[in-house]
Design a protein around this nucleic acid. Structure first.
Lengths: 231, 231
DNA sequence: GTTTCCCGGTGATAAATATCAATTAATAGG
DNA sequence: CCTATTAATTGATATTTATCACCGGGAAAC
């Protein structure tokens, strides 16, 4: 971790969380005075499941994966953490423990914000609290949808859905570098890695995508969406 | 629906949501003035997925099921709604639509609270907002845990988990009336109804539970917990 | 009272998915 | 460049789970 701050202040930060717009200058300064920058190399753990929620986390640049460590070391990848989004599990308001682990995928520059300060501002600023409620609600809605999809869709649908997630949410491009391994893709779609390989191959053979081990290109989006929704 | 209010006021209601304790007398009166009582017969829909979130819901007496209506009429039961708990899906703060449907299982007496009023109080009262954040976070944490369990546990574990949920959360008793049909138990555990029947029988044959079609009794809790956690 | 429909239950079978074993490809360290 | 390790891939097989077809019973509808 570097000790020197690379970001001069929250006020001028272009990657800051949208909800910070509801803060007064004083509140934003309070946040700014209680943030700690850190940089991470690929693979490094930024936040550990079960540890105390002493901080909320924001990514300034780079990407990370958030995942729950389940039984017998089986992980469940929740999402790709991106710049400008709040990273704070529901445990913060329940048991003061991080709900999931966050690990850097690329090089990451991040800000940790003291959670007590954060929480205090939530109590005092209604618009900020409402913004947080919207953020948490969106994530909660997302995980409900995900839960239903996981249980009602078959492997093809789940994998197609995840390929679209990378295209629509993470990279905003039909062609992208697949930053997860086949194993990790399996941890995200609840499939064995061998099945990921086989179905990627099927999708390629049928002309829906192009795929080499590291690159994905969506060739027939309409069909991929259909596979994703139909199941 | 009855038009006469059976509950005289929120102030004296013994079944009210815990978080209402953070309201001032004026705020509680505002809630009280904007609530609407209704009674439902078994099977009746109290709140419909996709409809506008014009109200938050509380159950005064009785039980309901909350479920998401997925593809091809396949439902996914989220929980049993109980007296004193807030019933408000995350959609309220995301797309102003109810995220799930709520249907009465027994006879139900319920209060609908105008959501705009509710939201307004959230903005003005920090402690109340924090209580709502805690409530929503607890549900969100629950659904994350559930998602991981659904994907990492096999049928036996999932069913055992649900039997324990009824015992620990719903009835707080080792012996209870199973208010869900086998079909519905399947919708809660992501199993076909035939599998529910078979595994219940297995659990009974091995002396872990007693079960006739409508009653469940946990005979060997330790083993049931083990089945639930081991998977 | 009869019919209809849903629920619980059972056995046989099919489909989906995971696991195992082995091979090749890719990559990091020396 | 060479080697050790990890990831990707493949085929064969085992396991898990769903589906289908059917029965009997009970409750609700007519």
């Amino acid at each position: 971790m570097s000790v020197v701050n690379l970001i001069s202040s929250c006020e001028t930060c272009t990657r800051r969380w949208k909800n910070f717009q509801h803060l007064t200058k004083e509140e934003l300064n309070l946040i700014n005075d209680n943030r700690y920058e850190a940089t991470f190399k690929p693979g490094e753990i930024m936040m550990k499941q079960g540890s105390p929620t002493s901080n909320a986390l924001f990514i300034a640049s780079g990407m990370a994966k958030t995942y729950i460590e389940g039984q017998n070391g089986k992980n469940f990848i929740l999402s790709i953490a991106l710049p400008g989004r709040l990273i704070l599990g529901p445990g913060a308001y329940v048991n003061s423990r991080h709900t999931y682990t966050v690990a850097a995928i690329t090089a990451v520059q991040a800000c940790f914000i003291n959670f007590e300060i954060f929480k205090q501002i939530v109590r005092l600023n209604g618009a900020f609290a409402e913004g947080l409620l919207e953020d948490i609600s969106a994530k909660s809605l997302g995980s409900l949808t995900r839960m239903v999809n996981l249980s009602q869709k078959k492997m093809h649908g789940r994998l197609a859905e995840t390929l679209l997630y990378f295209s629509d949410v993470v990279f905003k491009n039909d062609e992208y570098e697949m930053i997860l391994s086949r194993q990790e893709l399996g941890e995200m779609t609840n499939m064995a890695k061998e099945c990921v390989v086989r179905i990627l191959k099927e999708l390629e053979d049928s002309g829906v995508i192009y795929s080499d081990s590291s690159k994905i290109k969506i060739l027939d989006r309409e069909r991929l969406v259909q596979i994703s929704t139909k199941g």
